[in-house]
Nucleic acid binder design. Structure first.
Lengths: 332, 332
DNA sequence: ATATTATATGTAATGGATTACATTTCACCA
DNA sequence: TGGTGAAATGTAATCCATTACATATAATAT
């Protein structure tokens, strides 16, 4: 392996000078600089960053914890993070946590052992107390999911407001019997349910608790939810699903029961998952500003790493209602 | 920050002994070991792996290049990789390359700069010559996509055989006018087309070149492909799409033209993407043994890192035809 | 021409952990 | 009890690059 010493010897200078060339230190004469650069090229020298990182006690790497990379929701978020990171000389790495605390612990060692400079959580499994402790000692940023009491910077949307907007859309279409399929286990789900309740209450629709199917998630959850709802005497005419995957499961099950969407039942999803537009019918949904969420999260992270962030702000970015076929108004 | 020296001083031993305790070296007396462990705990000492890695000149990290994390196809593959990696004391990190050579170059520095021990490519943008050069100097494994001439270990499936099986399934259902939507820009696509040709030729169906829509990909490609096919005088009765996303785009466009799947046109996809089962109709497709592909790739990687792999094997694992609604035989 | 300052480069310490080698300790045996 | 070998521990070099500080050289001012 070629080291900085080899380059120095070959170029007839000291390692310090080579280092200065590598780091674009201005106090190297043009002649020397060119000479060193040539040797670097000739020897195909690649600096060993383990040495640099040890010396500087930083790695310029940020690790992103993902529940699972298969969740396409996060791809745009990560892109946003990468944009800001690269602009600041940082790199972004990702890992799967599978929402398991044990897996999180494994990868948490990356920051404890100085292998990365910071960690961004997208859907933490560990609880807010542990997270807050962690955030005291290390640069931590939460992206999307968080618990109210967590002492760490957060970037997210106003989920209650978004849930409100979704349900309001259904109300404006004339629906009165509106069901919800979701989970209040994560805060985002809980807040979306709050928005659902707020919207109904506001127009004087009494909340029918049997219309609220909780603690089911993802595609299968949508199927289960619809089965439960169709077993009711008074069936809903509209469905607010707190994720697009739930919505897709729900629609599939509705179709199985020969119910048409949106003619018989309108369905609205959440996230504007890539599949939302591809599905048949295409899904009305709430889009999150994913790219900007990622950018903002990385901005906070880099500030935090550099010690320029002392408070723990909770930043909420603007969501958007996207109307597609699954809630089209029906010609009577 | 607490260092190994601090622990040593506090425990009244040398740093070497602390290091031995950390690494479970047997030549430490039980008494000393317990004493050191207690101090480690009391001081909440976290070893700085930058030091260890520099000394050992290894990081026990493997980086996986993903075209984009939003491609759900790779999640199971990564899971397989993680299983084997963790079993061997390695960790898996991922990054987005967006199939851009420039981005690949950025992350390639990770291995050149000794920040990771190996890189697994899932869909390399760089060409086989550069890859082969790289593989000479560094542990590189290719997973799924590869070019014939690449001098590096490869784990994949027999794409020609899989394409053959897919088309054969359509033939057995009685179809004669079978179209293909795909891309021969990646080798897997090219090979699947070979399988398509082989299957048709075998039963004496002449190949209609206008039934082959090339160089379109993903969801939009499916839409474009169907538009082209429906413009033909003699429309096909079956469609082999070389990915599930293409198939979904195709079906969406077919429906738009009031064509029913599978009644009017049968459609088969490829990959057994998660959405394949969720879509309406659910997709007949070719499933790749993704978990096993990931496991195998990581096995090769670790062998290669340890210097126990000198050849460049091309390992092909077994695929499987999964029959669902999109090709159900039609009752006449 | 000398003093002063700026520029360029080198020397050596540093970061934290590991490990080859050296030394000490201790148990056991003759 | 002295000798032997094994076990336990310590010393110091090492991994590679960076950087504070020292020194040498060149440029400028007086």
């Amino acid at each position: 392996m070629v080291t900085i010493q080899d380059v120095a010897k070959e170029a007839g200078v000291s390692a310090a000078t080579v280092s200065r060339v590598l780091n674009n230190n201005h106090s190297v004469s043009i002649k020397t600089r060119e000479k060193v650069k040539k040797v670097i090229k000739d020897l195909n020298y690649q600096p060993n960053l383990l040495g640099r990182n040890l010396r500087r006690m930083e790695t310029r790497m940020v690790l992103v914890f993902l529940y699972n990379i298969s969740n396409p929701f996060y791809s745009k978020i990560v892109e946003g993070m990468e944009t800001i990171a690269h602009k600041n000389g940082y790199n972004v790495l990702m890992c799967n946590t599978n929402a398991k605390i044990e897996t999180e612990q494994i990868y948490l060692n990356f920051i404890k052992n100085k292998l990365v400079d910071g960690i961004i959580f997208t859907s933490p499994a560990m609880r807010h107390k542990a997270l807050s402790e962690l955030a005291k000692d290390y640069p931590i940023v939460l992206c999307n999911e968080y618990e109210r009491n967590t002492q760490a910077p957060v970037v997210t949307i106003d989920n209650e407001e978004a849930g409100y907007d979704a349900v309001n859309h259904l109300i404006r279409l004339g629906h009165k019997k509106i069901a919800l399929i979701g989970s209040c286990q994560v805060r985002s789900g809980y807040e979306r349910e709050l928005g659902y309740r707020k919207a109904l209450k506001e127009v004087g629709i009494e909340i029918n608790e049997s219309y609220i199917i909780r603690d089911v998630g993802s595609y299968k959850g949508g199927i289960i939810g619809v089965k439960k709802l169709l077993a009711l005497k008074e069936k809903p005419t509209a469905l607010f699903c707190i994720s697009d995957l739930i919505a897709i499961g729900a629609i599939k099950q509705l179709k199985k029961n020969k119910l048409r969407v949106p003619e018989d039942i309108a369905v609205i999803g959440f996230d504007n998952n890539r599949i939302a537009n591809m599905y048949d019918p295409s899904l009305t949904t709430i889009a999150q500003p994913r790219y900007d969420i990622g950018k903002k999260a990385m901005e906070l992270m880099i500030k935090r790493i550099k010690g320029n962030l002392t408070s723990n702000p909770i930043i909420k970015l603007q969501h958007e209602l996207i109307i597609r076929d699954s809630t089209l108004p029906i010609m009577q």
